[in-house]
Structure formats: C-alpha cells, structure tokens
Simulated assay, not measured.
Amino acid sequence: MSKPGKSGAVKGRGAVGNQAGRFARDEREAIDDGWPGDDEDTEASAPATVVRPDPARRLISRNQSPDIPFDASINPYRGCEHGCPFCFARPSHSYLDLSPGLDFETRIFYKDNAAAILEAELRKPGYRPTPISLGINTDAYQPVERRLRVTRDILEVLQAYRHPVSLITKSRLILRDLDILEAMGAENLVSVAITLTTLDSGLKRILEPRTASPAARLDTIRQLSTARVPTAVMAAPVIPAITDHEMEAVLRAAAEHGAHGAGYVLLRLPWEVKQIFRDWLAAHFPDRAAHVMSLIQQSRGGRDYDAAWGQRLTGTGKFAELIAQRFTLACRKHGLNRGARPALSTKHFRLPPRTGDQLSLL
C-alpha cells in the first residue's frame, strides 16, 4: 500500500470537514484570509466531543426493508465518535440541523431513559417478541458508552425479559458485558458480529480513528467464542482499492479466532456520505482517489451510490461479482457460514414480576 497523503486531515477524526447537511439553508466555507496563525488553531483542528441527553418517546424501531435481516432495532445513540468517514448513518445528523461531517462524530446524543422506555414497550398488551438488533445505525459500544452505560442498561432489561438480541460492534468494550452475553447465549438469546474492516493498523487509524485495533477485535472474537457466544465477523465495508485486497486475510484471521460465520457489505455512499468520503480520499489517498471512485461507480450503475433494494449492500457489475465470488470461496475455505444456525429463540420471553405485582409475593 502506498503512503497516504494527509492534506486537510483532522487528527483523531474521520471527516475532514463540517459541510452543511442537505436540509441546511445556509452553508459556510473556510477561506484563507492571509492572516498568520490561522492554521495553528488547535481547537478547530481537533474539535472536542459534546455529549447531550436525548430522551426517547419510543425505543424499538421497526424495519420493512426486504434486504435487511431484522425486523426490530434499537439505537442507544445518535452520532458516533468512532469517526468512520464512510458511515451510512452520517446523514441522520442533518435531521438535527447539524453537519454529517465533524458534527456527527463530535455531537453525540444518548437516550438517557432507554431502559425505562424499553420496559414499557415490552409490557404493552399484545407485544410479540422478535429478535432486536442493537446498535445498527451507530455503534452501541462507542467510547461514551464506557461511562454512560446505556447499552448495558438495555441488555439488563432484555436479559430480565429473556428477549433475543443481536449486536454488531467495532469495540472491545462489548467484553465488559460478557456476563450478560454468556448467560443469554446459553439459552440461544444472543448473537454478536464484530466488524473487521482491515488488518492494517495504520489504515485503521485514519479509516476508523476511534475504534479498537484489528488485533483487539480479533481477541474480542476469540473471547466471545470461548464463552460460547455465537460470534460472526463482518468484513465491512469492502472499499475498492483500499481494503478489498484484504478480504481473504480478514476472513482467515476471524475464523482462526473462533468466528462461526461472516458477512460483507460493499461500500455504501448515500446522501452526504458521498462527499464526505470523497474529501477523505482526497486528504489521505490523493494518488488513487479517482481509481477508487471509478471502481465504486462501476459497481453502482455508473453513480456513486444506487439505493435499490437487493443490490445496495453488494453492488452490481464485474467488480461486485468478483468480490462476491472471493467472499464465497474464502468462507468455504475457512469453514465460515457452514450450515444455517438456528434462529434466536423467542420461546423464553416472559414478563418478570415487579415490586407491587401480586406475582412478586409468591
């Protein structure tokens, strides 16, 4: 891999700018006014994270997309400090009148009443359990979770109700909750996917600035698997001419550390993410930016992105077909996705007695 450039990069952050969202009425653009010292403004080059409560009126979201393998999800956070420039959730900050750029990774909102709202929803008359996917839009184990513990609170409720849940994360912090995950795993109530985008630590630092190292993620797979928590690896996103050459190595390493299954997603660039990723390429890989975008467009019907169901996750065309073939062969070689795993169980679901309930007296 050639050495990336660094023009415009913000240390410790993924986005290289703070462009306006698509709903903004005004746009701001930084210019060089010629006065000395402007380029030494450390606050501007390394913006701090601001965390604010975002009380929820409801917690469980329902999904009707035919190409997404879950019906219900919970997102404890809006925004994500991990700072991945390709994150498909970035455009959601536009709804908050904030930038999908640096604002997305520095203005974090958390659902401080998540556990209480979840309990109320699970206790609604007629509620029927279906596996809940936790942390789909943004990582449920991003850095602020260490002190806020919103995800931990949610898991404690799901464990008490014996409700099935799946999680996907790039963080080693999930091991903090191994006591809950191991107990739920024994009743087929939980599954985990660890996203492993690259094995290159140098690339990880600029591609996923505030995430766990590749070695730490592999060790997380090992510890979860050892505890009999069903654990898969997500080789995602596959970025043409940046990470695609690593697919076989990523899958091999994950299998060697105990992963039972695998999946992949070809890079998605919806809405404002298109420009955020282009700016990241220009800052870090100016030598190959045009080639990367050419391969992406070849896989997206000549555009930066095609949102059509059934192909938005894997793309179309020769390059996309080659990625799919390589993935299938690597999984077969390393024993991944060998046979269908049983669906998470809903038969154990129950309403635990609360203080004041007559059942609590028995």
Score class of each variant (00 low, 15 high):
2 S>C: 01
9 A>T: 13
14 G>M: 04
15 A>L: 05
20 A>N: 11
21 G>I: 02
30 A>S: 11
35 W>H: 14
36 P>M: 10
51 V>L: 14
51 V>M: 03
53 P>H: 13
55 P>R: 12
56 A>M: 11
64 Q>I: 13
66 P>I: 11
67 D>V: 10
67 D>P: 06
79 G>S: 07
80 C>H: 10
82 H>E: 07
83 G>I: 06
83 G>W: 06
93 H>Y: 12
95 Y>A: 14
99 S>T: 05
114 A>V: 02
116 A>M: 07
119 E>Y: 01
120 A>E: 14
121 E>S: 05
125 P>R: 15
126 G>I: 07
127 Y>Q: 01
127 Y>A: 00
130 T>H: 12
130 T>W: 04
137 N>M: 14
139 D>P: 11
142 Q>P: 03
143 P>F: 07
145 E>L: 07
145 E>M: 10
146 R>P: 02
146 R>M: 08
148 L>D: 01
149 R>K: 15
154 I>H: 00
154 I>P: 00
158 L>G: 01
160 A>M: 10
163 H>S: 07
164 P>H: 09
167 L>R: 07
168 I>Q: 13
168 I>M: 15
170 K>F: 12
170 K>D: 06
171 S>E: 04
178 L>A: 09
182 E>G: 01
182 E>T: 15
195 T>F: 04
198 T>A: 09
205 R>M: 02
206 I>L: 09
224 L>I: 10
227 A>R: 08
227 A>E: 02
228 R>M: 00
235 A>Q: 12
241 A>C: 05
243 T>K: 08
254 A>G: 06
255 A>M: 05
260 H>W: 06
261 G>M: 05
263 G>Q: 05
264 Y>L: 10
272 E>N: 09
273 V>R: 03
276 I>L: 15
285 F>I: 02
296 I>D: 03
298 Q>R: 13
302 G>P: 07
304 D>K: 00
304 D>L: 09
313 L>I: 04
315 G>Q: 04
317 G>R: 05
321 E>R: 06
321 E>L: 08
326 R>T: 09
329 L>H: 04
336 L>R: 06
339 G>T: 09
346 T>P: 01
348 H>Q: 13
352 P>K: 10
359 L>H: 11
359 L>Q: 08
360 S>C: 01
